[in-house]
Design a protein around this nucleic acid. Structure first.
Lengths: 143, 143
DNA sequence: CTTGCTGCAAACAGTTTGCAGAACT
DNA sequence: AGTTCTGCAAACTGTTTGCAGCAAG
């Protein structure tokens, strides 16, 4: 899985004539090793441990590369920070965000996707992507 | 409709002991008279025409009041600006955003809402709100 | 008169950008 | 060698905040 992602990035890098640098390799490693939905800040701090001279700008720039390469997706949740999540071979999922403890539950639903296409069809709209976030309280916080 | 909203806000203001000021009245008027999904900047500029001494901070503060009062909703789309839309008597709807011309089509769907509650139920999750945005090309831009 | 509201400017957070030097090919 | 990439710091954008004066109750 991780190897596959590295390959995706290398292929992308090659196809675009990008260079392979220590920073990029390291950022990719750390990104792949983190749980989902990391903020740039979180990643930056983690990377700084193993490579103290890294600059924030590099992390920002590299994450954008990952998005272009198709292995990460940008998330704009409600905490004012851009977060990045892994893309697992084109699969899409949505999020239930607990507003109390910030736990994120991922889910996927056929019915919803179908309903969307149906509505889009009715409006002559061509879907490229979508984003569904459900906010509320998770099972441990609702009590 | 507009009168009703004014009443909602007045009731809220009274209940919270807020004062009625020219600025608030004007901002409410302009907000109610605009099309959906205004950014703070857009509103600010419109208001500045009729009331040049208005400050941005007041617009920001007042819009937050509207949200608290239940007559506006904050939207975080993908253009880095917070936008506000009208809430029509508790009704909820979702958005299809054309990434080419920025047209926003609103829709509502029973099936999707139901599927959500069903999934939430399965996870013991208590839904407070949700946000669904579909991105793609509208009928005029897809050609 | 008391307290809340406003406008201003400064502060802020997250992100982007210009640039000189370093690193890859 | 030539060009891309990096780190730094400064710039920027959207938003928030502190404060002195103003205005509503």
């Amino acid at each position: 899985m991780i190897l596959k992602k590295k390959k995706i990035f290398n292929d992308y890098a090659t196809s675009k004539g990008l260079r392979s640098t220590n920073q990029r390799t390291l950022i990719l490693d750390v990104f792949l090793s983190t749980h989902q939905h990391v903020s740039v800040e979180e990643l930056y701090l983690k990377i700084k441990c193993g490579y103290p001279s890294i600059g924030q700008a590099t992390v920002y720039r590299t994450l954008k590369l990952f998005v272009e390469a198709g292995l990460a997706r940008e998330l704009l949740l409600h905490d004012g920070q851009t977060r990045y999540e892994h893309i697992i071979s084109g699969e899409h999922h949505d999020h239930m965000v607990c507003t109390s403890c910030n736990t994120i539950i991922e889910f996927e639903d056929e019915t919803i996707e179908k309903a969307q296409s149906e509505i889009a069809g009715r409006h002559g709209f061509l879907i490229k992507s979508h984003k569904l976030e459900v906010y509320g309280l998770c099972s441990s916080c609702r009590n």
